[in-house]
């Protein structure tokens, strides 16, 4: 079990490196809004990997741990969303 963890870490690191490579090479292409979306989705996947494996969220039990990231995401989404209800409609 413990040694599997070791291997997982290396694999996650590899995935992060590969994803970085993808976004960097993507950035050369001009896809307009789509490229913003893709770049952000890749960043989200990368941080998801860091959160669940490096930061052990995947292994933590308890409701609080399950709720933390959703709470923060909800707060950020709402803050940005409501700010945009002004910025985008002014």
């Amino acid at each position: 079990m413990k040694n599997r963890k070791y291997r997982t870490y290396i694999l996650v690191w590899l995935a992060l490196v590969i994803l970085t490579g993808i976004t960097v090479s993507m950035a050369g292409m001009d896809l307009g809004l789509l490229s913003i979306a893709i770049v952000l989705i890749i960043a989200a996947i990368k941080s998801g990997l860091v959160l669940s494996y490096f930061m052990h969220l995947k292994y933590e039990t308890g409701l609080l741990f399950k709720l933390m990231i959703p709470i923060v995401l909800a707060a950020l989404t709402v803050f940005i969303g409501l700010t945009f209800s002004d910025v985008a409609f002014r």
Partner: peptide
């Protein structure tokens, strides 16, 4: 929070 900004010039939608 935006109710502190009704007359600030924020969008009517907000």
């Amino acid at each position: 929070w935006g109710h502190h900004m009704f007359v600030s010039g924020q969008s009517d939608f907000a």
